[in-house]
Amino acid sequence: MYDNSTMETGKRTLSVLLVLVAFLAFWQLAVMLLRPPEYLLPSPVAVAKELGTAPEWYLSHAVRTIGATLLGFAAALGLGFIAAVGIVYSRILENTLYTLLVALNSIPKIALAPLFIIWMGTGLTSKVAVSFTIAVFAIVVDTVLGLRSIDPDALDLFKSVRATPLQILIRLRFPNSLPYLFAGMKVAISLALVGAIAGEFVASQAGLGYVILAAQGSFQTTRVFAAIVLLGVLGTILFFIVEVLEWVVCPWHVSHRERS
């Protein structure tokens, strides 16, 4: 069973890599043949060279963006989880907080970024705030769902041995909600990165969002591409970390999913 799934994963990774290499080769070839001006479309090789010229400079900006993303994500995870527990256990919170969250979710949260800059300045805090605002909804919604979708028989089992409500929360509802929480985390980690970049677009002196905006102003398209490539790599790594965590924390769920 394990060998089989490992092989499947290996095959899938290989095919993804092949597609990626083919795409880059096509791009490189197209640029070499059609020779568009570099400010319109640089070749992959040119982008790679650009990254190679100042790796530390790119790294320092990437670290800024990662910092804002992770802080925003962590805040969304912590506060979102607490809010979800409150919503599940309190009718009042469900009617107020949850209703408010659902209503606010229809606002494109990126539109709030300029407000956060006004309130918190152009430093890290405002980026973390945008990142948090955009990521928290996914955590709350999925955790509420997870805490609620308890097998009624499991609840009876706990009641049949006179488990306390706290025991039901900690030993039943919480572990049961983990697969849902991870589904929310996978959405939230990507959204947190979007939020950090959006914040950097509005006003900043550092971060990959700043790099993109500054390079765009001076038509350094190769540099824009270099930053975008870094963002792509970053997003993939962050998502992958959440997936590995899921494997470690709730292997039963991963196993169910692989079987179906």
């Binding site: 028989d153 009876d156 089992l157 709730c250 039963w252």
Partner: peptide
């Protein structure tokens, strides 16, 4: 306190 209950579904906890 001295009762055991077996349900139709086993309700084992996956974790």
């Amino acid at each position: 306190l001295d009762m055991g209950f077996v349900f139709q579904r086993d309700v084992l906890l996956d974790w």
